[in-house]
Design a protein around this nucleic acid. Sequence first.
RNA 1: GCUCCGGUAGCUCAGUGGUAGAGCGCUUCCUUGGUAAGGAAGAGGUCGAGGGUUCAAUUCCCUCCCGGAGCUCCA
Length: 640
Amino acid sequence: MASHTIRVTLPDGTELELPRHATAAEAAKRIGPGLAKAALAAEVDGEIVDLTRPLEADCDLRILTERDSEALELLRHSAAHVLATAVRNRVPGAEIGFGPAIEDGFYYDFGVEEPFTPEDLEAFEEEVRRVIEADHPFERRRVTKEEARELFHDDPLKLERLEEFEDDEVITVYRDGPFLDLCRGPHVPSTGRVRNVKLLSAAGAYWRGDERRQMLQRIYGTAFFKEKELEEHLERLEEAKKRDHRVLGQELDLFAVDQRVGPGFILWRPHGSLIRNEIEEYEKELILRHGYEIVYTPHIMSERLFEISGHLENFGEDMFGAMDMKGVRYRAKPMNCPGHICIYQAAQRSHRELPIRYAEFGTVYRYERTGVLHGMLRVRGFTQDDAHVFCTEEQVPGEIEALLDLVDEMLQVFGYPYTLTVATRPEKALGSEEQWARAEHALKSVLEGRGIDYDVDEGGGAFYGPKLDFQLIDAIGRKWQGPTVQLDFNLPERFEIEYVGEDNERHRPVMLHRVLIGSMERFVGGLIEHYAGAFPLWLAPVQVRILPISEQWLEDAREFVQELRDLGIRAELKARETLSYRIRDGEVRKVPYMGVIGEREVEGGTVAVRRRGAGKKQEVMDREAFVERLLEEIRTRALG
RNA sequence: GCUCCGGUAGCUCAGUGGUAGAGCGCUUCCUUGGUAAGGAAGAGGUCGAGGGUUCAAUUCCCUCCCGGAGCUCCA
């Protein structure tokens, strides 16, 4: 027998007695008028629902306000509906696609005759404000599939989506004023609760993400509860724009792409090359210390090798075409592993030799589709800091341990915090389930043994083995793909690689692919943005500029520059223009140190040192002390 | 690859159906400087490429190349 009242338990443990079918909004009102006003939605037994949802039975209830982290997604999803309402008001014939909340905002896809222009976006933003002012309540309705077909008879995209529902499935629609959408919800109570909306951009997007389907027009936007948060978000976008490696790469003379060379190929100019070289030198020292051996393999190899490796079959579309030389076909390598395997196979290997770790700054070529190319971040020719570890299955945990140390050491040097993800067996996978389970267990238990937090990407591994990925977090909080370690059950089989065990039998070793930096191009591109072009001293292309105040002190300055160069410091003499001009130029070029030399400095054997970004604050130092400071900062690879 | 936007001096960009502009940079000269641009003069362009319309095309139209915002993709 159902009673007429229900018991509602609040997060603090107190209980409310409410009439059955009371709504969450009514519950909020019972708790307090302030909460009732601030309420946006409710969590009932762990499920987030609209405030208008009747409570049918005893339950746990939490009222969500803008202070709750879940609320932002709600706001943005509702903002997407407000956008669609606005677009439909202006363009009545617009077909409506999907409009979800995403990481930093929301989008909505529309099928329209004419693509949207920036002026359209402004008009829509104006209309969005009107829809918000109108304060239409969001009304949820449960409908049958038949009813829904009727409601959306003018919306072909929605009808298509509708047909995917089971006949007896719960279908809900939401109305706000004139706009009706097929939507699971929940939403904020009314359009008036949506605030601080900014439409950011419009671009084409395929219906259902399928490139064979209709192209819709997607509008991206974002929304925040507080105006200040919106402003800060827009400032972050501005900041990201200022850090764009393509802009800084041009300004600081680091790299270029040249139409004559071809799309997706990077020309490293001298200053960019210096940075890259420093990184490579550092990494070589690091990995030699960690027991790697450095190898080199050719850029062009016989196609036969890629038939054995399976690259041609699985990856052929992305490889550069074959070069036919007197009947033998050759390919630019898309990966370094086959070459390393050939080196491994140059001799019969004993378990006593393992693990064998081959490392190469290996340049590979991949024919990426034109639309994906992007500065240094996505290119067609790039150099990986690639390594392959050949070991026994028992040695895998130890190798993972060693790698965690290596990665941690390296990422600290560059100043990147990071997170980890273990990617597990996908549906289609090579190797036995036990093999995968053992490998995944090995990865996870090493991490757990060290008390390291990690995410799991279920089914995200490659078909040939599980993966451990590191995500870097840059100076403005963006995530970048970092080091990866990949177990490989495939290539050892294909190449039939072996070692002789203690039992004098042949065994198949396990192979690990790993990159730390990934691609030099992408990593340096990322670093440019991470440091906003202001590289720490050890990486700065020009470390010190010496500025004599007038030609009178030129000779002294020249000698000092040479002294610095003799110590391996990248010093430059800048003597021509006015001092102010040279200071400004040094700051704009982000030179870490400038040393001014005038009458006083020549007499005292000192130098007036100005640190990048420190403004007028200068420090007159003995030259010896200045040199010491530079050498120490370079030696420790200080982040500055 | 797809949709849209763009390509003008080394760089950033303005402009026009009738002989092409600015700022920075570069060269030369003057200035000999004390902490974010001293002054002057000069050089520098097949207006992305090809085709079409036109008396005339950098400008309008078409094709291609390259770049950008996204989509898709990143084994």
